[in-house]
C-alpha cells in the first residue's frame, strides 16, 4: 500500500456530496485536519455497498480536527478534538 499522506500531514476533506453510500460524515466535509494514524488499506465501501469487490483497496487514515473549527458555536474546551476515519479518496493536501 502506498499512502499519499504521511502522519502529521494537513489534509482537507473534499466538500463533495455524492448521492449514494459514502462513509465520510457530512460534518467534516470541507474541513481541515491532521493525519494522526494510517490504519492500512481497506476495500472501498463506496463500491462494496453496491455489490462490487471494492478493489483497489484504499488507504484509511485517522484524521483529527479541532472541534471548535467544526462548529461555529462550539461551547466546549479549546483543546477539544474530533477524530474521524477517512478513506484516501476523500482527502486533499491542505494549503500550509
Amino acid at each position: 500500500m502506498t499512502a499519499r499522506f504521511a502522519i502529521g500531514a494537513k489534509v482537507s476533506v473534499r466538500a463533495a456530496y455524492p448521492p449514494g453510500h459514502v462513509r465520510t460524515p457530512f460534518f467534516v466535509r470541507g474541513k481541515t485536519g491532521v493525519v494522526t494514524e494510517i490504519m492500512g488499506a481497506y476495500r472501498n465501501p463506496e463500491a462494496l455497498a453496491y455489490g462490487r469487490d471494492g478493489e483497489p483497496a484504499l488507504p484509511l487514515y485517522r484524521v483529527q480536527f479541532q472541534t471548535a473549527e467544526l462548529w461555529d458555536d462550539y461551547g466546549g474546551g479549546a483543546a477539544d478534538s474530533t477524530v474521524v476515519d477517512i478513506y484516501e479518496n476523500w482527502l486533499d493536501p491542505a494549503e500550509a
Binding site: 465501501p45 484509511l60 466546549g76 474546551g77 477539544d80 478534538s81
Partner: peptide, 17 residues
C-alpha cells in the same frame, strides 16, 4: 463532567475499525 482544560476527544467510528 470533564474539566475544560482536559481535551475531550470524540471518535466517530465511520469505517472498518
Amino acid at each position: 463532567a470533564i474539566p475544560d482544560d482536559v481535551e475531550l476527544r470524540v471518535h466517530d467510528s465511520t469505517a472498518d475499525l
